[in-house]
Amino acid sequence: MANTGWDEFEIGAMLRSFDGKIDDIAGTLQEDRAYSQNNSFVASVADWRIEKPVFNKDFCIDCQFCWIYCPDISIISRDKKMIGVDMDHCKGCGICVEVCPTNPKSLLMFPEHADEEAELAKWPEKDEEKK
């Protein structure tokens, strides 16, 4: 279906979000859903990014501010814990870093090509002057 051009459909054709039947979408987490090839979940906007967020779980207090304010459903929270960033869907806007309340921040923006391990190793120290 995904290979069919937009003008090659028969009238009444359907593009479905999922393969097969899902009874309770609101109770099914993303990893348990059978996404179809027509759901934008299977696409990626990773090439939009100039900067990427890097998550340091040592300082995270699981306040979930980043989860609620992420416009791209890219903050993965499971069982009330923030567990990482979905790099296929993150556009690198930087809102998560701005709303992060910890000191030092648990999320920081780095250039897309930066090495995550190296950046985590030299994470900034606590800023004593900040309240």
Partner: peptide, 16 residues
């Protein structure tokens, strides 16, 4: 935050 989102990423809205 335990909600399962029913709106998906990789939409084409501007970053931010």
């Amino acid at each position: 935050s335990t909600s399962a989102d029913r709106f998906e990423g990789a939409n084409l809205l501007c970053p931010g």
